[in-house]
Design a protein around this nucleic acid. Structure first.
Length: 580
DNA sequence: GCCGTTTTCGGCCCGACTGTTTTCAGTCG
């Protein structure tokens, strides 16, 4: 996607400027610009043509010029200029933990080290020791950092981060002196991928807890161990930080370490406007007097803001909304009343229809919609017409059994969207389903225009209910296919087609950054586990996190409807769409 | 490079930990 490349170039410019020893605030402007672009869901070309970059705070003349240049020519001259001086191999060294731009700059100048490979060799030959600012310990740490890099990528799926955090917290709770323990950071904000785990502890025995922490059985390395902060590396490849917090500082620390960094900067800057200073220890007046706050809510209140849930703290407009008391009541896990889009043994699932339904029932849901793969998905044992009808028979039979439990199984399908945008069943047959999810599972390499047209054609099919995983991305392993989501969302709004928030931890697709755009276009969403086994049904909790990050409420998501209303909704929705 | 109802120049969030240093720079979050 061209937007991704722009974000990449801006970030790279920031990094190159750091290595060249430029004004750090200049690099920050570029990083900040990249982030702003990331949050924009509008068409960048349109903004450029209409010369509206000045509407975006943080993008000034310089950045606007470079972004426009990129949109018009596909490149940025300034980037190429810097890139002559700082090749990619040097920049890659920034990924080594503990090694930053200053040290890299020295290494390049003193030892002509211009790649990780050369750096590793120089360390092994003991060449770093003796250079000003370097010593044995630094050399050792760089080697360790290189090893770490080879072993792991620096980001991890949210689900992996959360599971590790929960295990670690359970372990630390064994220490009786722990009065309060919370996970902060990107896990608390429910980011789709996370870098590390931040844990805050309030205790009478800081030493004991820190010791317990570094003795955690899953530790592979202790990176730091101080009186208030310790840092470890876990066998799953991610780092965990522990911070010991005093009781009256806990809310401030919780807010501070939850971030995001950008949200914090905005909050500090707002504090300044009130003549106050905010840091992880407290909120202070001009004469260093502490303003007491017992909770995060109070901190926000003192700054004349309503409470901002952690998921929204990305500096994407939450301070403005909180100031105007316009933070929405976000959807919660128990708002979901039914499970939509699961697979069974009929296609590529591991459990039978009955097992999946029983699982839903035991989790307290009152309906389930099966959407097994359709006939074009032969790799996933997709169903042809005949097998669909057989599945219908079984569902009808089971529904008799479930009736007394006020639970219902609905008949759905995950129909492949063919490369030309048709669904892989005839209309008359699609009409037999209660709900049709349409998904792209093939020909990922189409051009953006072709892929966008493909999705929109599917949306125009009156039998489509929900557009499934709209970008096809697999987090940390496969990029989204090229598609103009803005146009797709607009089309879905016009045609009254729902969009899925696929809750599989590898997908989390629709991305939270686009949820608000969907909402603004009148698009309703469906939070789906895309479960292939009973265990996968609980994945909807990840989808809830994404929906919350996307500012969505109970009303924006249709499987929050109780069973009777949901059934009515499906019928009326189909009728409405056929009328159009 | 960005920003401004004190400002078009001079700020830009701020503290912990580490390692190499005798008082601090670099890195990280």
């Amino acid at each position: 996607m061209e937007k991704e490349k722009l974000i990449h170039l801006l970030n790279r410019i920031g990094e190159m400027l750091e290595i060249l020893g430029e004004n750090p605030f200049k690099s920050r402007s570029y990083y900040n610009g990249a982030r702003i672009i990331e949050g924009i869901t509008e068409d960048l070309k349109k903004i450029t043509e209409e010369k509206r970059w000045n509407e975006y705070k943080g993008i000034g003349e310089g950045l606007a010029q470079k972004i426009s240049e990129y949109i018009e020519t596909g490149q940025i001259g300034y980037y190429d200029e810097l890139h002559e001086k700082v090749p990619d191999e040097i920049l890659e060294m920034l990924n080594i933990p503990g090694l930053g731009p200053k040290k890299i700059s020295v290494l390049v100048k003193e030892l002509e080290i211009t790649s990780i490979r050369r750096l590793e060799r120089a360390c092994r030959e003991n060449k770093l020791v003796g250079i000003k600012g370097f010593g044995e310990k630094t050399q050792e740490n760089i080697l360790k950092g290189i090893e770490y890099l080879k072993k792991t990528s620096d980001r991890h799926l949210f689900a992996v981060g959360l599971a590790n955090a929960e295990r670690l917290i359970d372990y630390l709770k064994k220490e009786k002196s722990v009065e309060k323990i919370e996970v902060a950071g990107s896990i608390r904000r429910r980011k789709e991928t996370v870098k590390d785990i931040d844990i805050l502890v309030q205790t009478r025995e800081p030493g004991k807890v820190s010791k317990l922490f570094i003795e955690y059985p899953e530790v592979t390395e202790v990176i730091a161990h101080g009186p208030t902060k310790s840092s470890i590396r876990l066998k799953d490849g991610l780092n965990a930080d522990l911070r010991v917090i005093k009781k009256d500082e806990f809310p401030f620390a919780l807010h501070y370490f939850t971030g995001s960094k950008e949200h914090n900067i905005a909050m500090r800057s707002r504090s300044k406007d009130f003549g106050l200073k905010l840091n992880e220890y407290g909120l202070f007046t001009g004469n260093e007097e502490k303003i007491q706050c017992k909770s995060e809510e109070e901190i926000f209140r003192k700054l004349k803001l309503s409470y901002i849930p952690p998921e929204l703290r990305e500096n994407f407009g939450e301070l403005d909304a909180a100031e105007k008391n316009k933070i929405p009541v976000l959807i919660e896990e128990n708002d979901l009343k039914g499970i939509v889009h699961v697979h069974s043994t009929y296609s590529d699932g591991l459990n039978t229809i009955e097992e999946m339904a029983e699982q839903c029932l035991s989790l307290g849901y009152s309906y389930i919609v099966f959407c097994d793969h359709s006939k074009a998905a032969f790799y996933a044992n997709g169903l042809n017409e005949e097998r669909v009808l057989k599945q219908f028979e079984e569902i009808d039979k089971l529904n008799k059994k479930f009736k007394e439990k006020k639970f219902k199984i609905f008949k759905g399908i995950e129909s492949d969207i063919l490369p030309d945008g048709r669904l892989d069943f005839e209309d008359e047959f699609l009409d037999k389903f209660d709900l049709v999810v349409g998904s792209v599972h093939s020909s990922f390499k189409l051009s953006e225009e072709e892929m966008t047209a493909r999705a929109i054609k599917a949306i125009n099919n009156p039998f489509l209910t929900v557009l499934g995983h709209p970008t096809g991305r697999l987090l940390l392993s496969r990029d989204a296919y090229k598609i103009n989501l803005e146009s797709v969302i607009e089309a879905a709004g016009k045609q009254n087609v729902l969009i899925e928030i696929n809750s599989n931890p590898h997908r989390l697709d629709l991305d939270w950054r686009y949820c608000r755009l969907a909402k603004d276009n009148g698009v309703k969403l469906m939070i789906c586990p895309d479960a292939h086994a009973t265990k996968g049904i609980a994945d909807v909790k990840y989808g809830i996190g994404i929906a919350r990050k996307g500012w969505l409420t109970e009303k924006d998501v249709m499987n929050t409807l109780p069973i009777n209303e949901f059934e009515k909704f499906l019928k009326e929705h189909k009728k409405e769409r056929l009328k159009k």
